[in-house]
Structures are given as structure tokens and as C-alpha cells.
Design a protein around this nucleic acid. Structure first.
Length: 719
DNA sequence: CTAGGGTTAG
């Protein structure tokens, strides 16, 4: 490489340049060769340069460079643009393929031949960009290419991955003699759309039609078994492979391992895995994700760390493993490490990362991820934007969530539902409901999830009648049969409004047995409205369903504590410690000047701890002068009154807000994320601080957001 | 010697 660079100063022959092109390993080097090519008029080398830069890396900048060189080539031969299309469609950044397609279209329609369509459709499939798919289908039709079986199969794949499985099926049924590839594509299509049982029955159809299952189809079917958690069918395929003495290649190995792993049969997966002499990258990824899905992230990480060769998929698997197993910080850490090692993520990686960011709830990280997404061309994907809406909402920034939503060129029912849910979470019921009506005006059909959002919004804003109307409209106008979750929303709506009789009536008449969530909602309502007797009943029902449910035990003891029945409190505490149950430790994070600080109750780990407690004293006396009285009614433990006051004052969110007051820049709001529900005392504390110190405070607790300013909270004390 | 399908991440 150094030698190559050293020779750049003098003029090169065509052959020399060609050799340099094949040996280049850096973009900067290719750019120098580019200059030489132009200088020596060896323009016939430009295509070679384009392909070299593509194979060098699939990062956004390298591909952009390749495309810009391509655009300098006058009249590129079709076979060459096809090669480039094919290459781009296989990178993690398939939208570059469509970019090239646009350029080609502006040159001349007939630079596209039948060979151009499969890669184009592949890119469309990866992006699930139906609008492009339809356009390209139309173009292929105009050019008379639809009888080409390659294009037919690619179209089936395209429709299937754009969630139009029926269109895919129609095309498939039109094929007179579908070959193994076509069968596989349609079976895989059903899998992608979640119809695993249909996929398995199509597999039977295929066998009956006389087409012999090949390796590829066996892989697809095994994967269907995994998704359908159909261990018996999966095992029977395994038997079939053994009986027919088929050699098991690395694809089949990973398909088998994955099937067992997805069915939760890690021992069987492990059995195959341990027997392998060399652990192929993909096989290891399958094992890794099997463990990750079961929440066994340590086992997963062990495999990950032992892998010598890692691609973006296994990084994604590990990241999503953390993200889905309640370790979002680890997920983000790993993503940073991935970028440091210059591994290019794709859309799916980004979805996991965005989801991890939502779980963490830190706005700085959220904004950083958003910038990254936009700079690297992921911002066009519908699913990515949907995830961004949810992320901003869960990070407390409704304005940004809305900005993403409004700027989306295309929205689907998930986009609308996410935005409605975002408003609901923040107690902004009016906007949630307005958006719901706007959605209907734009003829987007709401689904069951959409209604969960609006009903939740109504419940949290005390809009009883509106909620009842929507619930009935869902059933009668939209023909959606309510699930247990919908009933849960309605029960909660009545509970919060202190219409406990109606809540119970609904619980008794609904066609489901009440679950933990429904009893929990009734129980909390009783606690807030001081209905000790009914609350005790609900808590006991809950404990019946889930003995040792920590929330129920805590609430039950709170109910007793409020009534000063210390004996009963003691009994519960004893049974909790006996069963080894304890309330999850409370912790709060505050984000100040792009840094995240974590506080536990009464902790002194922070380096400015003294200052924080000093501030706390000051704040407390300030608030007391405007009428604040520490309320100890929610303290579980039977302590002397004075000690309880200290405990409640040392709640982690109070420490966090004091740190915020010390360190925030002027005018900025204080943003706190708490892992549990905020207690009554902290809630009034926050409201008063927002008034006395004229600061906006946003608290995300376990279930919702509280925006406090000028002494008022967005939840209207109703949570 | 340039064309379609597979395993792993959601």
C-alpha cells in the first residue's frame, strides 16, 4: 500500500492503473487513482473503479463515491449498470439501488433490460417500498418482461415483503410450472407475513405437486417451524434430513439450530452446536440469538466474545438481545463499539438501537441516534420513522416526536398509532383524540392498537363519555372485537374516575377472566381513592393469580399503612422477606448538559453529593414556606415519624431534581427518568419546585410522563 | 464468464 502510494506521483500506464485498482484497500487511495485515470485519459477503467470502491466497503460515503464516479461515465453499458445494481441491492443500504435506478431512468428507459429487474426488486423488497415496487412492476410490464420467470419470482418476493401476500399469491398461482425457487419464494413470503401454518401447508402442497424439497426449501421450512414454535414438525424435518442421508451444510446447520433455539430447546441446539468442528459465523449467531431471546444474555455474550469473525448481523443480534432483555444501556454501548470497529449497520440494527434508546429514555442519546439515522440514509424508511416517533415520545420530547411524524412522506397505521400513543403517554388527550379524527379523515383505518392509545388517553384525562363512545364505535363501526387489553383500558378509565362500581360491573360482564393488569388497575384506584376494603379484595385476587406479586404486596401494605394497621403491614413484610420478594430498587436518572447522572434512594455516590444534599435542605425549607408538608403515608416500613420524613425526602427523584437545579444551564428543563411509579409526595414536590424555581420538570415514571410547570402537572394529579 | 430462492438480527 505504501509502495502504491509512493508511485502515485508519476504518470501510469493503463495496466499499472488496473493493477493498482485491484489492490486498493482505502477510499483515499482510490480517489488518487481516479485522478490518475482522468489525467491519462484511461476512461475505460472507470467501471472498474466503481466496482472496486463498492467491494471496498458498503459504507454510505463509499457507495456515494461509487455512484458519483458512475454518473461521470457517458453511456454506461447496460451489463455494467446491472452489475452495479446487483451489488448495491446486496449491501445493507439498498436505497442506493433506487437512487441509481432514478438516474438511469432520467437517462433512458432502455438502459434497463430483463437482468436489471431482479436486483431492483430485491432492493425494493429490502426496503418494503411498495410505491417503488408498483412503479417497477408497471415498467416491467410496459417493457413486456412479465413472462420472464426470474422477474415473476422477484415480483412475488417483492409483494410478499411489502405485506401484500395476496398479490404475491396471485402471481404465484399464475405460474404454470413453478420451480423450486418460486415455491420457496412464496413459502418464505408467508413466513415473512407471519402465516407460518400456511407456509407449512404450502410445503405439503409442493411435495404433492411433485417438486422435490431441496436444501433451500428445507431451510425456509425449518425457519417457519422455529417461528411457529412447532417443535414436532421441526424435529420431523430433522428426521427427514437424517433418513435421506442429506449432507448438512452450514445453512442447514444454522436453520436446525435456530429452529431448536426458537422453540426454546437450547439443549438440542447446543447438542448440534457442540458437535461442529468449526463454528461458522452464522451458526454462532443463531446460537447467540437463541440465548438472547431467552434473556440469557450472559451465555449470548460468551459466544459473541468468542467469535473471531463478526459481521453486522451478529452485532445486531447481540444489540437486540440486550435491548429486549432490559439492558438498553448495554445495547447502546455495544452499538458504539460496533461503529468504532467500522461495521456498517443496516435498518434492522437501527431499529434495535432506536428501541434501546427508547428504553433508556435519554434525550441526548436519542438526538444523537436521530442524527446518525439521517446522515446515513435510514431516515427514509417507514419503520425507522415509526420507531423514532416512539423513541422521542419515551424520551420525553413530544415536539420532536411530532416533527418526525409530520415530516414523514408516507405514514401507515403504525405511524398514526405511535403518535396517538405518544400524546396519550404524556397526558395530552386532546391531541391524541384530534389526531385520531385526522387519521380517519385521511382514510387510514385504525386497528386495535390505535384504540388502545385513544382509550388510554381518555382514561388518563378523565374523559369518560368520550372513552365510552370510542369503545362502542370500535366494536360497531370498525368491527374490531375488543381484546382483554381494551377491557383493561376501560376498567382503568372507570377506576381513575372513581367509578369503581362501573369498573367492577365491566369486569364481571367482559368475556375474559380478569388478569393481573386489570386487578392491578382496580387495586391502585382503590389505593388512591381510599377504598381500603375493595382494594384489599383486588389485591387478594391479584395474589391469587400471581402469588407473591410484589406490586400487590406493596400496595396492600400501603393500604394498611395508610390506615396505620402496622400489624398487617408487618405480616406482609415478613411474607415478602420470607419469599425473597422485594420491590425493585428505585432509581432516577437526570440528564444535564448532555450527561446522564443516576441516583438511588439516599445514595451518596455522586461526586457532588454534599452539594446536592445541601441544595435539598434549601429546597425543602423553601417549599415548606409555601406550604409543603412531607407526606409519609406511602412509606411501607413502620418507622418513627421523623425517620420516615427523611426517607421520603431522600427519594431518588428528589436528589435528581436537586442536582438538576444545581447544574442545569439557564432556561433548560430538568428531565428525569424513574424506573418505578412516582410517589405522591415526590409528585407534589416536583410541582412545587416547578413553581418556586420557575423551571419545567419532566418526569418519566414507569407508566407515563409528568410535565410539571408553574406548580401544575400535565397528569392533573390523575395517574 | 451478468439474472430469481436459503441460514443469522426485528
Amino acid at each position: 500500500m505504501d509502495m502504491a502510494m509512493a508511485t502515485m506521483s508519476h504518470k501510469h500506464t493503463h495496466d499499472q492503473l488496473q493493477r493498482l485498482l485491484s489492490s486498493s484497500t482505502a477510499l483515499s487511495h482510490l480517489k488518487q487513482i481516479h485522478a490518475q485515470i482522468l489525467h491519462s485519459n484511461s476512461n475505460t477503467l472507470l467501471p472498474k473503479l466503481v466496482l472496486s470502491s463498492c467491494t471496498l466497503s458498503s459504507s454510505s460515503s463509499t457507495l456515494d463515491y461509487a455512484l458519483s464516479v458512475f454518473s461521470q461515465i457517458p453511456n454506461p453499458p447496460t451489463h455494467f449498470s446491472n452489475q452495479l445494481l446487483r451489488h448495491l441491492s446486496r449491501t445493507p443500504l439498498p436505497h442506493k439501488t433506487l437512487f441509481l435506478y432514478h438516474n438511469l431512468r432520467t437517462i433512458d428507459v432502455f438502459t434497463l433490460d430483463t437482468f436489471s429487474f431482479p436486483p431492483l426488486l430485491k432492493a425494493v423488497s429490502k426496503l418494503s417500498a411498495l410505491t417503488y415496487g408498483l412503479e417497477i412492476h408497471g415498467l416491467a410490464s410496459k417493457l413486456g418482461f412479465l413472462s420472464d420467470p426470474f422477474i415473476q419470482t422477484a415480483l412475488i418476493a417483492m409483494y410478499a415483503s411489502c405485506a401484500r401476500i395476496m398479490d404475491a399469491r396471485l402471481l404465484f398461482d399464475k405460474m404454470s410450472h413453478p420451480d423450486a425457487v418460486a415455491w420457496n419464494t412464496i413459502i418464505d413470503g408467508y413466513c415473512q407475513n407471519g402465516h407460518f401454518d400456511d407456509a407449512l401447508s404450502l410445503f405439503e402442497d409442493m411435495k404433492n405437486s411433485g417438486v422435490k424439497p431441496d436444501f433451500v426449501i428445507l431451510c425456509t421450512v425449518l425457519s417457519a417451524c422455529g417461528h411457529a414454535r412447532n417443535l414436532s414438525y421441526g424435529s420431523s424435518i430433522h428426521e427427514f434430513i437424517k433418513d435421506n442421508g442429506l449432507a448438512i451444510d452450514s445453512y442447514l446447520q444454522s436453520a436446525l439450530i435456530n429452529m431448536y433455539a426458537n422453540c426454546g430447546a437450547m439443549e438440542l441446539a447446543r447438542e448440534i452446536y457442540d458437535g461442529l468442528s468449526s463454528k461458522h459465523l452464522i451458526v454462532s449467531t443463531a446460537m447467540l440469538s437463541g440465548y438472547a431471546k431467552l434473556g440469557m444474555t450472559k451465555n449470548a455474550r460468551f459466544i459473541f466474545d468468542q467469535m473471531i469473525e463478526k459481521d453486522f448481523v451478529c452485532w445486531s443480534a447481540m444489540i437486540s438481545g440486550y435491548s429486549e432483555s432490559d439492558q438498553p444501556q448495554e445495547a447502546l454501548k455495544l452499538f458504539n463499539e460496533m461503529l468504532r470497529q467500522r461495521i456498517v449497520p443496516d435498518q434492522i440494527t437501527m431499529l434495535s438501537v432506536i428501541s434501546a434508546c427508547s428504553h433508556v429514555g435519554a434525550l441526548v442519546q436519542a438526538k444523537w441516534i436521530h442524527t446518525y439515522v439521517d446522515r446515513n440514509g435510514f431516515g427514509r424508511a417507514l419503520s425507522v420513522n415509526n420507531a423514532l416517533i416512539d423513541m422521542y415520545a419515551k424520551c420525553g420530547n413530544l415536539v420532536k416526536a411530532r416533527e418526525v411524524f409530520e415530516n414523514m412522506p408516507r405514514k401507515n397505521v403504525i405511524s398514526w398509532s405511535s403518535m396517538i400513543n405518544a400524546f396519550a403517554m404524556h397526558g395530552n388527550a386532546d391531541n391524541a383524540i384530534n389526531l385520531f379524527h385526522r387519521m380517519k379523515e385521511e382514510n387510514i383505518e385504525p386497528n386495535g392498537v390505535t384504540f388502545i392509545g385513544v382509550l388510554y388517553a381518555c382514561g388518563h384525562a378523565g374523559l369518560i363519555e368520550e372513552g365510552q363512545k370510542l369503545f362502542s364505535s370500535m366494536i360497531h363501526d370498525h368491527h374490531i372485537s375488543p381484546t382483554r387489553e381494551h377491557y383493561g383500558c376501560m376498567v382503568d378509565l372507570y377506576c381513575r374516575a372513581n367509578l369503581l362500581r362501573k369498573a367492577i360491573e365491566l369486569i364481571e360482564t367482559m368475556p375474559f377472566a380478569p388478569n393481573v393488569i386489570i386487578w392491578g388497575s382496580l387495586m391502585s384506584a382503590c389505593q388512591i381513592h381510599g377504598e381500603a376494603e375493595l382494594g384489599e379484595f383486588a389485591a387478594k385476587q391479584l395474589l391469587e393469580l400471581e402469588p407473591g406479586h410484589d406490586g400487590a404486596l406493596v400496595v396492600l401494605s400501603n393500604i394498611y399503612a395508610k390506615e396505620r394497621r402496622w400489624n398487617d403491614v408487618g405480616l406482609i413484610r415478613k411474607s415478602m422477606s420470607y419469599k425473597g420478594i422485594s420491590k425493585e430498587k428505585a432509581c432516577s436518572r437526570v440528564e444535564i448538559n448532555n450527561e446522564v447522572h443516576t441516583f438511588m434512594m439516599a445514595d451518596r455516590y455522586h461526586k457532588q453529593s454534599d452539594e446536592i444534599y445541601h441544595k435539598l435542605d434549601e429546597v425543602v425549607s423553601q417549599l415548606k414556606s409555601v406550604g409543603y408538608k412531607p407526606s409519609t403515608s406511602n412509606i411501607l416500613i413502620d418507622l418513627e415519624e421523623e425517620d420516615k420524613k427523611d426517607l421520603v425526602l431522600w427519594h431518588s427523584e428528589k436528589l435528581a431534581v436537586c442536582y438538576g437545579l444545581i447544574s442545569r444551564r439557564k432556561e433548560s428543563c430538568i428531565h428525569i427518568v424513574k424506573n418505578l411509579r412516582i410517589c405522591e409526595d415526590c409528585h407534589s414536590f416536583m410541582k412545587l419546585v416547578s413553581k418556586v424555581y420557575q423551571v419545567e420538570i419532566v418526569v418519566r415514571d414507569r407508566t407515563r410522563f409528568h410535565h410539571c410547570s408553574s406548580g401544575i402537572c400535565s397528569c392533573k394529579d390523575y395517574w
